[in-house]
Design a protein around this nucleic acid. Structure first.
Lengths: 242, 242
DNA sequence: TATCACCTATAGCATTGCTATATGAACTGA
DNA sequence: TCAGTTCATATAGCAATGCTATAGGTGATA
């Protein structure tokens, strides 16, 4: 087993705990396993961390700092909503890379035991949403939007962790992500009221698709296909029947 | 302590475990506590459930059946989207009424340990979404929409459980709920063409157009054209948006 | 009555989180 | 230089935990 070079004992304990937790697949990790891997004995652990839970709290804190660093480390793209997408994806990737740590962080949140992490994560999201709001790209209060988006983000990440890595379908993430962002951006505000009679017509949908296709340089169709496709769209768009 | 009348020992163990779990506030519940409350001894527990985890699995299963019963027990309102709202609220209420049970059910989902519950919950949601799709109120595939909505539903419930009951703000739930439902309902298709995110907007618009075309029997295209057109739409619809 | 399957209890094992106590190392002030 | 103080680690062991080997009791069936 790795002796973690000659780091100070406190760090060796932290690393050993993190390592064992990461590969524990849900099984509980004993203090004896940890101290043995770190090449130490029990009292050292309790001297530095007081408690088994104290040690795991430290692991979680370290993991959270790594997460925050990841969330801050990309350059703003100028488009706040796009930045929020990257933030969302970053969150999901963090969860999938360290599922056990993520489950400890977000899967066992009880009111008495530190919603601090949640508050920090919300602030992070809110900060970004403030920029969106300043740019007129938000139709709800940033704080509420942040809480809502983060909740969905956590839910999606937990669900993805729950499925075997082989069948993991990230479309669940992108779909939910875009749904949430779409719902809080102002372009659609007026549509929300008409949920019942909605039934968008073929024409409207075709117009939307037409515009979207031309703006996106989709590579799903060849250029000749695209040309014909757009012509058909045009025929549908300009027809007067619903 | 309640002796649970004179129920059979198996049931007494189940009830005792559920009761202790409910008031455990996250602390671990020992088999000795359970057997003592049930008025039995250890071997009885292991005879009936094999394992401590087996017992808790049984508790979770019972809780899940209660949850499913709750989800099925309201009469369809005629408006599928409205029914989905009630389903969502039901889910949240279940989680808030039995937070510890809910955390065991949805907060510790690992790939190796039963995504069965998730699959069942998804089916439940998908069933309802099928009705919405049949009524032309859906612009994505019901299965994907079900997974997405359920993920957000779980995330919101976990977040609400994490905050002290006093400060619990159910607006987080209704806001996220409506955002998700709004995003999968066809009303918003026309707004999708935002500048930078054009790619995923193409997908949304294509799905909407696909659904609209199939429901409207448009005569703008010949049947052979329509067939090819729909095939292309499908290609676009199922492409993974970045 | 005898048999047999099922259910429960007594007693105890190995492992767990944790600690009382003691030992060593490093620094401090004279 | 050295006693005193503080920090850090080890030895050994306790109480509680999940679990089990074994045996005793109960009812139905023959």
């Amino acid at each position: 087993m790795s002796l973690d070079g000659q780091l100070p004992p406190k760090m060796r304990l932290l690393h050993a705990a993190a390592e064992l937790l990461a590969k524990s697949a849900g099984a509980s990790v004993s203090t004896r396993q940890i101290t043995q891997l770190a090449g130490l004995t029990a009292p050292t652990l309790y001297h530095h961390f007081g408690d088994k839970e104290g040690l795991f709290d430290a692991v979680v804190t370290a993991g959270f700092e790594e997460y925050v660093a990841g969330e801050r480390d990309f350059a703003p793209s100028g488009n706040p909503l796009e930045d929020i997408r990257r933030m969302w994806d970053n969150h999901v990737q963090f969860g999938l890379k360290q599922p056990e740590l993520y489950l400890v962080m977000f899967g066992n949140l009880r009111p008495e035991s530190r919603p601090a992490i949640v508050a920090d994560a919300e602030s992070l999201m809110e900060e970004m949403l403030n920029k969106a709001a300043a740019a007129g790209q938000l139709n709800v209060q940033p704080r509420e939007a942040a809480r809502s988006i983060l909740a969905a983000n956590v839910g999606v990440t937990l669900m993805l962790i729950a499925e075997p890595a082989a069948e993991r379908n990230l479309e669940l993430s992108t779909m939910t992500r875009d749904a949430m962002i779409f719902a809080v951006s102002p372009a659609q505000a007026e549509g929300a009221a008409t949920e019942d009679s909605a039934r968008s017509s073929v024409v409207v949908a075709a117009i939307a698709l037409n515009a979207a296709l031309q703006a996106s340089h989709s590579d799903q169709l060849s250029s000749s296909e695209l040309k014909l496709f757009l012509e058909w769209l045009h025929r549908i768009s300009t027809s007067t029947s619903s």
